[in-house]
């Protein structure tokens, strides 16, 4: 794996985190391809061979629906978010996609200013290049924190 590719995958992860931490939810679907999959599957389910998805989205249009619903319809905890992404590894290639992994930690800060760990886990990604940009054709989020703190609204 070239150092240049690894640098670009790290950058993709950082930009993704900055987008969501910066409250630019509307831009979130653009990190994905049109026929992408975005899945959140807690680790206990994955290891038991169960689906157990918190979210199961096929296609960018389902991601856009999530955005509109969160911005206009649903009601949820008021908080800031901060994602720390590290241990980025590009592990190989399958078809037209690079297979990559990264660890994440997501913190919530409530509207009294108190911070807590919301979720820790792993990103398991398929990343493709189109028009000179890297995008996720699949982002499979596997939280170790398999019991959700309260509820989950924003994407991890």
């Amino acid at each position: 794996m070239s150092a240049e590719l690894e640098r670009r995958v790290v950058e993709l992860n950082y930009r993704y985190a900055a987008c969501l931490d910066g409250n630019r939810l509307k831009d979130w679907p653009d990190f994905f391809t049109e026929d992408c999959r975005y899945l959140i599957q807690p680790r206990d389910n994955l290891e038991q061979g169960l689906e157990g998805y918190w979210l199961y989205f096929e296609g960018k249009r389902m991601l856009r629906d999530r955005v509109v619903s969160l911005l206009e319809v649903n009601i949820y905890h008021i908080h800031y978010e901060r994602r720390l992404v590290s241990n980025v590894l590009v592990a190989g290639r399958e078809g037209d996609a690079w297979l990559a992994r990264a660890n994440y930690m997501m913190l919530h800060t409530d509207n009294e200013g108190r911070s807590r760990i919301f979720s820790v886990g792993e990103y398991r990604d398929r990343i493709v290049e189109a028009g000179g940009e890297l995008r996720f054709s699949e982002r499979h989020v596997v939280p170790d924190t398999f019991t959700v703190q309260s509820h989950i609204s924003m994407p991890i």
């Binding site: 689906e51 998805y53 979210l55 199961y56 989205f57 309260s150």
Partner: peptide
Amino acid sequence: RRMQGNLLGPGGYLSMEDAEALE
């Protein structure tokens, strides 16, 4: 049923508000 799974659970479109209201 898998698609409708997005409606329920801790992040479901129909259910995420309950935890917030109860807390």
